[in-house]
Each structure stands twice: as C-alpha cells, then as structure tokens.
C-alpha cells in the first residue's frame, strides 16, 4: 500500500536535493560562464537555457524516459523507474533554472568586477571563486529555486519514476494517486506537507534576499 508520509517525504527530499545539487554543480558554472564570456555561441546557449526553463516537465520526463527505456539509447543502464532515473530527469529540469538565475545574479554584480579582480592579481579560478562569493546569496537562492522546482513537479516524476510504492513514489505522485482513488484526505496530507516545505523554502529564500538586499552596494 501507500508508504507512510515520512518515507515518501524523505524520498522526495533526497531525490530533489541530489538533483538540485547536481544541477547547481552544472548550472552555476554554466550561468557564470554565460554571464562573463564574450565569445560567439553565447547567445545561442542562453536561448537554449531560456527555452529549457519553459519546457513542460512532462516533456522533459518523456524525453528522459525515451532515453532510459530498455529500447532506448541508455536502456542498458537500467535507470528507468528508479530513483537515479528520477534524479536525472530533475537535474534536466532544475539546471536551466539555476543557470538562468546564476546568469542574472552574476550580471547584477558590478560589470567591472571581473577585470578588477584580475587587476588585483587573481588568476582565472580565483576570479570565478570570488565572483561566487560575492553573489553567494543569489546563488543560494538559485539552488533553492532549483530544489523547489524539482520537488514540486509531477510530470517527469510520474513518467520516469512510475510512482512505484516504496521505491520511486514521491510527494507529488502520491498526491495524484490518492486523488485518483478519491482518497482526498491522504492527498491533502501530502499536499500539506509539500505546502509546508514550499513555505519553508520560500521563507528561506526571502530572508536570504532581504539579507542580500541589506548587503547591497550603496
């Protein structure tokens, strides 16, 4: 039967946390590069990232499922209907979002900052690290937004995860299942937990934004 709420919650959190960490590891460097690079191809990649943000989660889910299906190109890996498969799908969902927010955050820094850091004697890597430190609060917000996006989506989780009880069932797919069975009470419990989580994440986000606002240049 349906897992206890806490087990599903723990799985949801684990999947989405892993996915958003991986997505941050990709999206933050990519977004930084897009914000700073002055080379051809940058506009195209930016357009791809922005399109990526607008792709419905079910389409991402479908794409990942087609890749991971046994008949698909990555079928050998046996990742369809597994937690790892879900992480892959959510990484694809969260990465464009994190990349885009990172880009905006880095572009909000003083435009002369990278040149300035170089002139202070920073090497390439020291420049990037310092830019991340300067933008740490917006970058944290980016990662949290990625987490929020991942944990609240249902389309990809259903298609790639399969809502298998005790294995790949997460909060959102549990809600869909319970609504389908007319178990509105159980659906509301999951919904409430998800709402509380969203509230927590958003609360953290806004407090982070307020702090970063207070720390902004005068």
């Amino acid at each position: 039967m349906v897992d206890p709420v806490y087990e599903v919650l723990a799985r949801s959190a684990l999947v989405s946390l892993t996915a958003s960490l991986v997505a941050a590891a990709i999206g933050i460097p990519l977004g930084t590069w897009l914000a700073l690079a002055r080379i051809p191809g940058r506009g195209f990649v930016t357009a791809v990232v922005n399109t990526g943000m607008a792709v419905p989660t079910v389409v991402v889910g479908l794409f990942v499922a087609l890749m991971l299906w046994r008949s698909g190109p990555l079928g050998e890996l046996n990742l369809i209907y597994t937690v790892r498969g879900m992480v892959i799908a959510q990484v694809l969902l969260a990465t464009p979002l994190i990349t885009s927010i990172t880009m905006a955050a880095v572009q909000l820094l003083p435009p002369e900052l990278p040149g300035h850091l170089r002139s202070l004697g920073a090497n390439r890597w020291q420049v990037v690290v310092r830019i991340w430190v300067e933008a740490k609060l917006p970058l944290l917000a980016a990662a949290m937004a990625g987490f929020g996006h991942a944990i609240s989506e249902v389309g990809a989780a259903t298609i790639v995860g399969g809502n298998i009880h005790g294995q790949t069932q997460v909060m959102t797919t549990a809600i869909v299942e319970n609504v389908g069975r007319g178990e509105f009470g159980a659906a509301l419990v999951y919904g409430g937990v998800l709402l509380a989580l969203a509230f927590l994440v958003n609360g953290l986000l806004s407090s982070v934004q307020q702090r970063s606002g207070a720390w902004a240049r005068n």
Partner: peptide, 19 residues
C-alpha cells in the same frame, strides 16, 4: 600572472568586495 601582479590598478569606482 606574476608580472601582472606587479601592477596595481585603482578604478574610478572603488570596487570593494562584500566583506
């Protein structure tokens, strides 16, 4: 890098870091 580090550049807008 070492030779660049012999040059100090003070910009018009003081680009200090958030620390």
């Amino acid at each position: 890098l070492e030779e660049r580090r012999r040059i100090g550049y003070v910009t018009q807008r003081p680009a200090l870091l958030g620390t």
